[in-house]
Design a protein around this nucleic acid. Sequence first.
DNA 1: TTCGTTTTGTATCGTTTGGTGTAAAACGCT
DNA 2: AGCGTTTTACACCAAACGATACAAAACGAA
Lengths: 207, 207
Amino acid sequence: MIYLLIGMKSETAAQLGRPRAFDPDVALDRAMHVFWAKGYEGASLSNLTRAMRINRPSLYAAFGNKEQLFGKVLDRYISGPLAWFGKALAAPKARNVVEQIFLGTGQMAEEAGTPAGCLLVQGALACGNASARKEVAARRTAAEAALRRRLQRAKREGDLPKNADPAELAHYVMTVVRGMAVQSAGGASRAQLHRVAQIALRAWPKG
Amino acid sequence: MIYLLIGMKSETAAQLGRPRAFDPDVALDRAMHVFWAKGYEGASLSNLTRAMRINRPSLYAAFGNKEQLFGKVLDRYISGPLAWFGKALAAPKARNVVEQIFLGTGQMAEEAGTPAGCLLVQGALACGNASARKEVAARRTAAEAALRRRLQRAKREGDLPKNADPAELAHYVMTVVRGMAVQSAGGASRAQLHRVAQIALRAWPKG
DNA sequence: TTCGTTTTGTATCGTTTGGTGTAAAACGCT
DNA sequence: AGCGTTTTACACCAAACGATACAAAACGAA
């Protein structure tokens, strides 16, 4: 019961006790940058609290522990810096969907003030903490599943050739996207990623 | 002077003092698996020494420290599990080179007894230790440069269309390869990766 | 056997890790 | 003002981290 209330940003609920001196969403954004740049294990609690500008007990009271904080960060990452992905899925034609996904991936590389690469790739690809590893893997899987469903719909609508396999194409697109994330983390420029995307599109079935 | 002698497996050198009870190469292979599966920070010294079956002081005497051990592991990884890459570069035609690179990447996914994915991607993509991060990035860059040089040669030999850009193609191929490594770490099967490789090859310039 | 040298095993170093106990501070309510 | 409640700041915890000191053990040479 109490747990269900946590996180409800109810405007009407009367405030009880000393009010928070920080905005949880702002703190989450700051934590996101640390996890993004350093990975789950590379981000220490000292790193996190310093960046979030809160004390340890405040972090634990507001977000549970490091694992749970990471989970909330992943959610915020998907609904924030990765929100363009959902919009890309809404493009009219399958080819446009893929183009916008490649485009969005490339644009993330030039986003000022954010670490290069993708949190879902760098966060905990290889990690001693199995829970964190599974969390990012699950989110990567979910993204691919969403694209697959979109391409399956496209095929039903005659937007893809009959011999095209939506699942394989989705797997291919997400493979390129994740490769781009690795390249970006390694210092690849937006222009380089853009050229990669153009070449990758040549593999798209004609029709 | 003394430093130059370290690592020389001289058969003639007279042995001085108590002989090693372990094979450094075998120990490196065991350390490789730990770094490969858990990443640089996820691999603790206790994990490493347990897997290598040596004590801490033996590790430090033979390999310096954790960072230097990681560097030696990367070298051994490239000359071992990644040796197929160099052979692929020796294929007669540019298209064969790329085919073999994709094939090799896919085969690594089904290699029994080795972690899924690529050490150069999982080792320290995002990592609090900047040195480790740079080490893997440098090796990734070197691999891409080798492929680029091979494709440049191919173009000089008329093995690639005049409008093809070897650097862009190399960047594309390595992007797909690294994406495949991420997918593999996430549980993708050899068959799935093979289909991705087939689609990726459709982007290859005809000629 | 004794000496010089190197490795081995144990025990430990100081630091950092993720995580809390506690009391003062800051609010709404009466 | 005083009470109940929640957050804050400071201190601290046990455990794990990377890295060593030290003495016994195991060799070749003398």
